[in-house]
Structures are given as structure tokens and as C-alpha cells.
Design a protein around this nucleic acid. Sequence first.
DNA 1: TTAATTCGTTGACAAATGTCAACGTTCTTT
DNA 2: AAAGAACGTTGACATTTGTCAACGAATTAA
Lengths: 193, 193
Amino acid sequence: MHEFLIKYIKSHSTTLLSESDIQLINESFIPKKLRKRQYFQQAGEVCKYMAFIVKGAMRQYSVDDKGAEHMVRLSIEGWWAGDRESFTMLTPTIYNIDAWEESEVLIITKADMNQLRSIPAMSEMASQLDNNHAFALQKRVHSSISDPVEKRYADLAKTYPQLLERFPQHLIASYLGVTKETLSRVRHNLIKK
Amino acid sequence: MHEFLIKYIKSHSTTLLSESDIQLINESFIPKKLRKRQYFQQAGEVCKYMAFIVKGAMRQYSVDDKGAEHMVRLSIEGWWAGDRESFTMLTPTIYNIDAWEESEVLIITKADMNQLRSIPAMSEMASQLDNNHAFALQKRVHSSISDPVEKRYADLAKTYPQLLERFPQHLIASYLGVTKETLSRVRHNLIKK
DNA sequence: TTAATTCGTTGACAAATGTCAACGTTCTTT
DNA sequence: AAAGAACGTTGACATTTGTCAACGAATTAA
């Protein structure tokens, strides 16, 4: 189960991992299975763990006054789940995170994560991840103020085609900030062209 | 001119700065004056410098096919300017950055920034900044998919009242992702309540 | 000082999106 | 196998937002 993570770390760093490094990593990341719809984190809690998804699909979302859900993130295997702000600042999160599909994850606490910073490949990977995360958020902000829904959907389909295969359209619609009806019509228009 | 930066670094870190640290910082950050509307960075270039704004106001924006500008960021003194992705990845930026008001900035190259990582307070500040930046982007993504314009504007007015005083409304509108006419009407409705 | 821009507002209308209801299909669960 | 739920689509209509034009006030430049 940890092999996927080790492979992932190697591919996101340039320095080598010693046997003892791998040992330490294996001990720090605890395997956990999540049933369909099982919460990994609920709004109001402090996010105690980051999860590396080995298998499955998860979503991060808020719920507003009217009970409507807003997807801020959709993730599948090879990606991470957890609210960064809550995790690093130890403040209560406003997001729920749950498993959309039955999932297998490797979870780690903040303390253990800090321990692992002593491993060069780990800290390298972490900062690379932080960068990529920030770049992706920046692009999403930019497209949200610049592009019509049609383009936002097309870009998503091109950049992350896996997400369209794994999540139903009403979650994709929420992720894009529109209703499922609007996305349905936008898709209809796109096909015509 | 550097005093403001030093004060800023101190307030964003817990470790002390030695005299030689301050010396090194002063040498790494080069003062630069920008006239009104002068470019700090143009789309297509690689962002060679990060700028700490000592005085003035700057904006970061893209320009689409139709010539419309989209403000991804509005910053004033005590904030930073520069496209993080271009700066760290050495890729061409898609954003223009220019001075909205006459400004004084302190600029630093990536190489010099890396040098400064040896100063604990500096690296501490940098990671704190990265975090705050990511948290702010996350919030903006969330509000863009969850909140109506009215609430987005009210939140902005509450969180960053300075921005409303320093930038004209059509730039604020662009920052929120709506036209100036829409913002004008939204404000009108807000006042009635 | 005068002339030219920029800025914010407003009205009329078009376009995009949301809301609500209905429907058939597919997928789950029993 | 049957029943229920989830999903995606469509229509009718309301609401929001965009577009274009015009206007006056404030700001800037000549």
C-alpha cells in the first residue's frame, strides 16, 4: 500500500531515499479505508490529518445555509485530501471531506509531517506540492473572473479528464460554480459546435 | 527605504535578525521607483523579480482577446507583487503588472531570494507568506463558486477596506469578476438595506 | 484655464444563469 | 426481481448579469 506513495515521492523529488527514510515514511503514514460517503473530515473540526489517496475518489466541500453543497476540490488516487489552512493553522475547518468512492488513503499528522522534513526528498516534494497547489488555485481564480462557463468546463475537461469520468456532472457543475442544469445546457451547446 | 521591509520581516517571523542578516537583506533588495502606469512586468516575459511594495499601489491582470483586463490581484504598500508561477518556474507569465499609483518597491531576484533562505527569519517569513497566499486564494475560489456578487463585495469591503479606497470601482469590479455596471447596481442595492 | 479623460451611474434591452417541476434512465439496495 | 434513489435532461419562467449608449461629475493633462 505504501509503494504507491514512495513512488510518488520519488517522482516529485530529485534526491534519493535511503532504506531508513522509507522506513520512517512507512511508519508515519497510517493506512485507512473509507467506505462510500464516509467522512474524512467534517466542518467545525480541526483537520488533524492529511491524506494521500492510494485508491478511490474524494471531495471537499462546504454546505451553505440552504443546505447546498459547494465543491472546492475533487481528488482521486495520487492526489491529496485535507484542508491545508486548518491543518497548518490548527483552526476549525469550514469544509467537509468525504469519500465519493470507496477509498484507501494514507494519513499523516502534522507532527509526523514535520518529522519527515528532515528527509530531503520529502521536504522537496512538500514544497513542490505547495507550489503546484498555489499555481492551480491561481489559475482557477483567474478563470473564474475571466472565462465563461463554457470555457471553464472545456479547460477542466482537457486538463483533468479523469475527474469527468469519476464524478457525476452535478458535482462537476458545483466545482465550476454553476447549477447542474446550466452545465447540462452548456455541454449541449458545446457538442453542437 | 529598507526599514519598512525589515520591520515587515520581523513581524512575520519569530527568530531575530543579526546586523549581518540585515546587511545581506539590504543588499539583496534593490530600490526601484515606478511612475503611474509603468509596467513592472508584461505578459510574455519571465518574472525576474519579486517586488515588496514600500509605497504605492499595483495591479496584476490579464488582457483577453477583446482587450478586456481582468484583475487577479490588487496590492498596496506592505504587500508583494510578481507572478509566483513565472518567478519560481521561470516560465513566461500571462499577467501584466503595473503601478496604479506612483510607487516605490524593493525588488529581488530568485537567486538572491534563495541566498536569503539561509537566514531563519527570512525562510520563516517566506513560508508564512506562501501559506497566507494559498489560504487567501482558497477563500477566493470558495467565494467565487459559493457566494453571490453582493456577498463577495461585502466581504472584500470588510476584509480589505483599503483596497476600496485606493482603487477605482471598475478595477474592484474586475477583481470580483463582474462588470462595473453590475457592481454599481449591487452597491446601490446594498445601501438600500 | 480649458480641453480631454476617467469615473461612476442609469436606462433599455439582450443574454446567461437560476429555480422549479417533470420525466426517463441508470444505478443501488433490498 | 422489485423498489427506491440518484442522475441527467428538458421546458417554462424569474432573476441576474452583460452590453451599449448616454450623461454629469471629478480628475488629469495641455
